[in-house]
Design a protein around this nucleic acid. Structure first.
Ligand SMILES: [Mn+2]
Ligand SMILES: [Mn+2]
Ligand SMILES: [Zn+2]
Ligand SMILES: [Zn+2]
Lengths: 134, 134
DNA sequence: TTACAATTAGTAATTATTATCAAAACTGGA
DNA sequence: TCCAGTTTTGATAATAATTACTAATTGTAA
């Protein structure tokens, strides 16, 4: 059985791609509601899961917080702000991560990996400076 | 103000170290109850947070699931099983992760990073094989 | 059309965690 | 040792994010 592209799926997908951000289900729900006011939050959750399963979008499960969905399915890593939880894309060298060591780690069969750089975004750095002045 | 080592904190810490696993709050709660039957789950949550804040234990926030706490505070990475959610330690080469590229990524000030290898553990691989036979 | 399957909206239930708060335990002087 | 103030605890309520349920709606394909 293959994916059936319903109206709600189409709009969810379109709005995520359009945003070029890493949105959570409820953020996307707010955007989608503008075009489809009667859509249910459960439908957004359900379809985000289905769309990511189908490989049309990415799913980020970051640091115990809300899941975020990615408009970009190509291979890349992320950096996120511990203050405001904003997520940005990151393209860094990945050598040293494909060694035999990993391939045979502890008898696991490896399916992938997640690299998350953690830090404070420029906006939050500025805010922190202003706070200090007070 | 520095950390006051209460009975409950001592036992929580002791049981985590003893386990040599990456336990969740409720798993640890079960262990601690054996020695302190009247302890509350909230106390376990509260103190795990405090102990990790104090640097006595590590905190893993993995893949949108439950938090897990680490008996080992030295630098290392993790591998986890997508099937049973078991977490194991991993010591891999980290070169390629300390480049200037990262240090200046998107204007962020970097505080750290998390690398998670994802896969299927030996136990779950075996189980999957047995399932197939049926 | 008509039956069968898939999807939806709305809502309830669940899971993990955090907040609240009165009671208990601990602290450092008098 | 006692006391007043501070911290911590246990019990429970509240919250946040997600998932489950279900009847109604929609799509499909003969
Ligand atoms: Mn991305
Ligand atoms: Mn570890
Ligand atoms: Zn920020
Ligand atoms: Zn496993």
């Amino acid at each position: 059985m293959q994916l059936r592209m319903t109206n709600q799926r189409e709009i969810i997908l379109r709005e995520l791609k359009k945003s070029r951000q890493h949105l959570s289900a409820d953020e996307l729900y707010d955007k989608v509601k503008k075009y489809m006011p009667r859509i249910s939050l459960a439908t957004v959750y359900r379809n985000l899961e289905i769309l990511s399963e189908a490989g049309l979008i990415g799913k980020l499960e970051i640091s115990g917080r809300q899941k975020r969905f990615d408009y970009d399915v190509t291979d890349h890593d992320h950096i996120y702000c511990v203050v405001c939880h904003r997520v940005d894309n990151l393209n860094i060298e990945r050598q040293g991560l494909h060694t035999k060591e990993i391939k045979s780690a502890k008898g696991y069969s490896i399916t992938g990996y997640r690299l998350e750089i953690v830090g404070i975004c420029p906006v939050c750095q500025k805010k922190a400076k202003k706070e200090k002045k007070k």
